[in-house]
Design a protein around this nucleic acid. Sequence first.
DNA 1: TACAAATATATTGTGCACAATATAATGTGT
DNA 2: ACACATTATATTGTGCACAATATATTTGTA
Lengths: 158, 158
Amino acid sequence: MPKPEIEYPLALENQLCFALYSANRAMTALYRPLLEPLDLTYPQYLVFMVLWELQRKKELPCKVTLIGNTLGLDTGTLTPLLKRMETKGWLVRERLLSDERVVGIDLTDTGIALKRKAQGIPAKLFCQTGLELNAITGLKKAIEELTCHLRDSDRQST
Amino acid sequence: MPKPEIEYPLALENQLCFALYSANRAMTALYRPLLEPLDLTYPQYLVFMVLWELQRKKELPCKVTLIGNTLGLDTGTLTPLLKRMETKGWLVRERLLSDERVVGIDLTDTGIALKRKAQGIPAKLFCQTGLELNAITGLKKAIEELTCHLRDSDRQST
DNA sequence: TACAAATATATTGTGCACAATATAATGTGT
DNA sequence: ACACATTATATTGTGCACAATATATTTGTA
């Protein structure tokens, strides 16, 4: 992660990976008190953002795989996560008659209603970043480009 | 995370948090094939970086809490992690005679020797980021500043 | 010197991530 | 129509993160 001509490359403070790791944990730590009143974990909030957006586009129900591709998660993570969300009454999981392999995911009224309570979260977090809108946009873009490079490298080595 | 005057603030693509979440997972995914030959997980690699650096400064053995403060991890995470690393023969855990509450952590010869095999990892990852050294340094700095802001906000709300 | 507060680590339980494998349904080629 | 590959999801097992609680030791104080 760090540099080729550095005195001590294994120093923790040289690692971009550790900066990312720390920032990600600090970020989810800030979400936690905002999500706790909604009885949501952070990954569940991500799933809701996907589903609310699909509902807006009238593309529900959707396949589990669509959620997985959008968030980069496999069924080993999603199946139990979606089951917990179903238990909470936020969504329903049902095998399609047209193709029994596929499980269709759809929001319940409760799941749709939860969106109202989540509306204020993005603005609250924006304030807590302590950055200007332009700075955030730029940083997000830089991080997304890094992610692209990393995924390309990953595919190459496979 | 996103913006105050945005048409749809809850869109996934507006979230800085999701960019961070994705980048962090892409990054650890790239480390995995490099660490697997050393039988290391990514968090274990972080612990090793802390310990190797302390050894360089002749500050071993050290307290569990020092590792925890450096990495931002609590004993609920560290105790089992350090036990697994002890089982592998990389370090020893021993209560101090001077203060029986404290567990001293020290590297074994095997743990010290593992450093040689890890030397090449930072350079390999640097190449895979696809970024110039200056770009990485700048991005790391920007992410670290974000982390500072987020932690400040977290402390305030507590 | 008792005794309460503070400190350091450990334990328990939940929920991700992720690898590896399993299961079942659908599609394909002959 | 039948074997075989492909696809979609589920299951199992390991290892973090993190909250909540427990335990044991030391420190400070009346």
